[in-house]
């Protein structure tokens, strides 16, 4: 009796196996969107003043305007902000002499007193032109980028329009 039951069970399982399709598979797409938790916005447009023939500067005393960039991170310890002052013109008349660039990147204000240590903890690269802030707190910092370009040999700049770019970006840590 026991053998008979075993036989029927074996035949039944074999039958089931024959009725089943040979392969069962499905490919399902899994999608997701990651929104950046860091935002970089130009708050104040900058422009050069021309206090003398061979200097272009963003200093307000020389009729220039220092640009201000707003960097907002909604996540703590997730991003670092990299800001640099320009070291060349992106567009200008043809220049025969070299241009000496100088500038500063600084935090003008912040949304929290917890960010008061950002300046001390920041690092500088690219001969001082690029400054990196580690955004260890959620909130907003307002960064100013002052710059000055002196034409070589104190010669007069050729007439025309001069454009330089201050770069700011949010990079994941």
């Amino acid at each position: 009796m026991k053998k008979l039951v075993t036989l029927f069970l074996a035949i039944g399982l074999t039958g089931c196996a024959l009725l089943m399709p040979k392969e069962a598979e499905a490919n399902t797409n899994i999608t997701g969107t990651v929104e950046s938790r860091c935002e970089v916005v130009t708050d104040i447009q900058g422009y050069f003043g021309n206090p003398n023939a061979y200097t272009l500067t963003t200093l307000p005393a020389s009729n220039g305007q220092i640009p201000q960039i707003r960097i907002t991170s909604t996540l703590a310890n997730a991003y670092k902000a990299i800001v640099s002052y320009p070291t060349s013109f992106s567009s200008s008349p043809s220049l025969s002499n070299s241009v000496t660039w100088s500038g500063t990147v600084a935090i003008a204000s912040a949304s929290s007193s917890d960010m008061s240590g950002y300046a001390a903890a920041s690092t500088v690269t690219n001969n001082g032109a690029m400054r990196t802030y580690y955004l260890t707190h959620a909130g907003t910092i307002y960064v100013t980028v002052a710059s000055e370009a002196i034409y070589g040999g104190n010669k007069a700049y050729p007439g025309g329009q001069y454009v330089a770019v201050a770069e700011a970006s949010c990079v994941a840590q």
Binding site: S109, S113, D114, M115, S116
Partner: peptide, 15 residues
């Protein structure tokens, strides 16, 4: 409230 105790002073701008 912003607590500056033991911190560097920094200009605050908040919305």
């Amino acid at each position: 409230t912003e607590d500056f105790s033991g911190k560097h002073p920094i200009r605050i701008r908040k919305v």
